[in-house]
């Protein structure tokens, strides 16, 4: 009897900590420090929070800016625009924020958004992505109504999910949705891994995935166009410099090359 209890205790403690930690983790990070959100993040460091769909072009532009300005580091965190806006509202350090669509901007504290520099850097459209071998035989938006297809969309809380819902509702198509992923890259991954027959992502994601997916374009009449606003919260020369690069002609051509539409 006596040997039993102590044996189980270390594992017990570990499991308990894990369980409680997970139950509490997300909301526990919330703190009312929105007033600090406009504080620049530091000398020689530009902190960028950007929509997941901007991953490839912004990474390339950051590398270019670092190469042109030795000693400057551009740190980028990609995620769903909604999550990132929430993090800014909760006081996450940020110099530049680029969002897919304008809906996530509503989550930013008004005073922070009002004082920020702002420009539209790109536009994007919705596109269907399938695995390269197209197991579900998808060649149009209407094909998504096939109940045997496994279709993955972004969560309805994030811009790509809202855009997909808008397109599907307007076309009157109700697909068999098996999962709603937390951001556009997670959605695309389900297709590149071959777990889903189709996903609705942005045209730029299909372009950046290259041969890993097959794109099925949605005609303009049925499609929606998202604008990508970029906000910068500091007048630090490197923050302004990086913002100028992204919204300048070099930035636009990098974005267009990555499958975005020019602003």
């Amino acid at each position: 009897m006596t040997a039993r209890g102590p044996r189980a205790t270390p594992a017990a403690a570990a499991a308990i900590v894990a369980a409680l930690g997970l139950a509490a983790c997300s909301p526990a990070t919330t703190e009312d420090t929105s007033a600090d959100a406009e504080v620049p993040t530091g000398e020689g460091v530009v902190t960028v929070l950007a929509a997941a769909s901007l991953t490839e072009p912004l990474t390339a532009l950051a590398e270019r800016y670092e190469a042109d300005n030795p000693g400057v580091t551009v740190r980028i965190s990609f995620g769903s625009s909604t999550t990132l806006a929430q993090q800014i509202a909760e006081g996450a350090p940020v110099d530049v924020y680029a969002s897919a669509g304008e809906s996530a901007l509503d989550l930013l504290p008004e005073d922070v958004a009002a004082d920020a520099g702002r420009a539209t850097v790109a536009r994007n459209t919705v596109e269907i992505a399938t695995p390269p071998d197209d197991p579900g035989g998808v060649s149009s938006l209407a094909d998504l109504a096939d109940p045997d297809l496994d279709v993955v969309l972004c969560a309805d809380t994030v811009p790509c999910g809202k855009a997909a819902d808008e397109v599907l509702t307007a076309a009157g198509v109700t697909p068999n949705v098996v999962s709603r992923e937390v951001d556009v890259k997670a959605t695309l991954t389900k297709v590149t891994l071959g777990e889903a027959d189709a996903a609705m992502v942005y045209h730029s994601d299909v372009v950046s995935a290259g041969d890993d997916v097959r794109g099925v374009e949605i005609p303009d009449a049925d499609n929606v166009t998202l604008v990508y606003p970029m906000l910068w919260f500091s007048q630090d020369p490197d923050v302004v410099g990086f913002a100028d690069l992204v919204r300048g002609t070099d930035g636009t051509s990098a974005l267009v090359e990555a499958g975005f539409l020019a602003p």
């Binding site: 594992a11 308990i16 997970l22 999962s179």
Partner: peptide
């Protein structure tokens, strides 16, 4: 313990089972 760990499961679930 197994139940508590299962109840808190996030990473493996969202990666493998998706979110619906």
């Amino acid at each position: 313990l197994a139940w508590a760990r299962a109840l808190g499961e996030f990473g493996a679930t969202i990666t493998f089972a998706g979110n619906f």
